[in-house]
Design a protein around this nucleic acid. Sequence first.
DNA 1: AAATCTATGCAACAGCGTTGCAAATGATTA
DNA 2: TAATCATTTGCAACGCTGTTGCATAGATTT
Lengths: 137, 137
Amino acid sequence: MEQLRETLKGHHLRTTTCREDVLSAFINKKNALSHGDLEGALGENYDRVTIYRTLKTFLEKGIIHKVLDDEGMRYALCSNNCSEEKHQHDHIHFKCNACGETNCLENLHIPAVQLPQGYKPENFNLLIQGTCPKCNN
Amino acid sequence: MEQLRETLKGHHLRTTTCREDVLSAFINKKNALSHGDLEGALGENYDRVTIYRTLKTFLEKGIIHKVLDDEGMRYALCSNNCSEEKHQHDHIHFKCNACGETNCLENLHIPAVQLPQGYKPENFNLLIQGTCPKCNN
DNA sequence: AAATCTATGCAACAGCGTTGCAAATGATTA
DNA sequence: TAATCATTTGCAACGCTGTTGCATAGATTT
């Protein structure tokens, strides 16, 4: 509750009910969410457009980051405190082909890759698809 | 020319001018292409829908694979011969934030990642964003 | 060349994501 | 607490992406 306001203020954002609810959704459901997921959860309270704009704002302010997916864009909380200036991730995301959920594997790091001469890497994004523990009986 | 037909026949596809042209585009421009790119290049000759269906067919037959991107889907040729049955990739794609091009780094392999217990990985997709040699002066 | 099967173009549609603008809301000051 | 100002929201409208059904055109087989 109060923590939500803290987070928003910390990123120089006004506290509105929509922003609180969207942020809350990310915190409660720990997996990555699409716009459609949020619209399904909050769509009766807020306009489609407002949710889009909330996502855009959260992206810019470094509260969430994009999660690449082979069938659409998803979003997840930034673990380390990103800001408008610094927005770096070396994320590993695991998408389960059975249940469809995508999760950040927070504690893992992407191993170093030896790139050919001339390439200057800035961001790494590894998507692993397979079966997650819940679906893997 | 003749090679295009060979490739198509090898994947049990009829040779049509649209398929030849799309395949040709992937071979000539070596970077990953979006539907929009192809529509820009071939749009006056073929219907939008036909290009979509061609991409879908090529995907199913293992001629091309999806390339994840933070701003839309792209496609690139499969290097090792994929088929309808076997369609595995451990690709590294590099997207240049300056020129916007995305390329497969064919010769590199994704280093092994130690996943937590219970995760069964099947496919790996690493997107590295940064500056490519051409734009990196 | 005829028959058969597949691919194409067209029209229509659903979903995604954005923009402009007026009204509502949050923050700030008095 | 009320007034003010800046920001956010909802609505309407739009363009882009991707899909489906169906009649026609084209490729393959005999």
